[in-house]
Design a protein around this nucleic acid. Structure first.
Lengths: 210, 210
DNA sequence: GCAAAAGTGTTGAGTGTACACCCATGC
DNA sequence: GCATGGGTGTACACTCAACACTTTTGC
């Protein structure tokens, strides 16, 4: 039924944000080539399956979760990118909220782990390049669409949002300017609620509008 | 030698600008499916060929020309987009200067023709969608990169440039504002030369910088 | 009361947009 | 001299970037 197209695959770069740092989800490969190496999750595309469906399938098999933001970011087609034969891979990037992040780590389908995206060790195939492309894609998208919604909790203090911007852009941002911007643009909305349990002054929580 | 990957193809949307209108190059298909229908030029990708090379090959076979601006714009993967079997197609968009435009029309490799991009008749497969995506892509790129360079002659009056902007964006633009913008940004440079042979006041010619 | 993080305003530069008339040439 | 397209300037609104101190809480 589900014949593979063995020249076309998808790979997923699954990003999350925790403890002020961007993380990526890797799996320990359970087959050759690259057995036991940490790598991006991926799969061949089936003959009767649209490509983005294949990407969702990979995500679901891995996490059991459906409502994750997913976007196509590029094509990798180096002739020798995969050792055994020619495989063209379509790269997808998924963004997951912290609420789901823990859940995924606990899944027992495969051995999975969240890795800090900075100073990541070498991965097999062209997976480091793929991650680099995901980050570049994210940098571009960040000002175009309210995409950070998918990396932040439903309620968050603005400073957490600022940390996220800074992690992605790899620069520091003026807090007054950022606050003014996201509020005046109507991107976020202040709630009647504050953080508690912190060691200092509590912060107002915000949520994304729309 | 050159085995086809028969699930992966490229299609090329080749755009030009002439007589104040955007045009697209179509070929009359010389094989089934769609024999004798006008359509985008395309080809399977070979096993030992990168995808963008396949796109250039299509262009070269058709026109004999090498230095054409070419960019990947999207992937088409509807299950039934091609009648006989599953083919995933990568869409490329090429931009050609008027100097080359005539030349291509005269090539005798295949029956080719330039068509006005507005009110284009229905094309086979998903080719109308592809063209639509090319136009959307062009609209986005137009302010990001000095891409119009590839659609205008080497020397051109600013009003011609304005016509091109307007054709692409499908809106009218204030000429003072546009002139100010492209000059102050250093996008174009005034030459010591004017149009001649026109029926009215000659216009200064400009060229793209870089 | 003090350490630590949260929160807040103003100014200047630059950019985008709206808008209407004179200019140079061919005929 | 007139029709045709070529060319020009100003004023306002908005957006962005730079910059440092006060406030609130937990301990």
């Amino acid at each position: 039924m589900h014949n593979k197209i063995n020249n076309i695959s998808v790979d997923c770069s699954i990003l999350g944000f925790e403890d002020g740092a961007l993380k990526i989800l890797l799996i320990k490969r359970d087959k050759e080539p690259g057995l036991n190496l940490w790598s991006l999750p991926g799969s061949y595309v089936y003959m009767d399956e649209k490509i983005h469906i294949a990407a969702r399938r990979v995500l679901n098999e891995l996490t059991g979760i459906h409502d994750v933001y997913l976007s196509q970011v590029g094509i990798f087609d180096e002739l020798n990118r995969y050792p055994s034969h020619r495989v063209v891979s379509i790269l997808y990037c998924a963004l997951v909220k912290p609420e789901i992040l823990e859940l995924i780590a606990g899944s027992h389908a495969k051995e999975v782990g969240w890795f800090n995206i900075t100073n990541l060790h070498p991965l097999p195939f062209d997976h480091n390049k793929m991650i680099q492309m995901s980050l570049n894609w994210l940098k571009e998208e960040i000002w175009q669409k309210p995409i950070l919604k998918n990396l932040l909790p439903n309620k968050f203090p603005l400073n957490q949002m600022q940390d996220l911007y800074q992690s992605i852009l790899q620069t520091s941002i003026d807090n007054r300017n950022l606050r003014k911007k996201v509020i005046s643009q109507g991107l976020v909305e202040k709630l009647d609620e504050k953080t508690k349990g912190g060691q200092q002054r509590p912060a107002y929580l915000y949520k994304f509008r729309t």
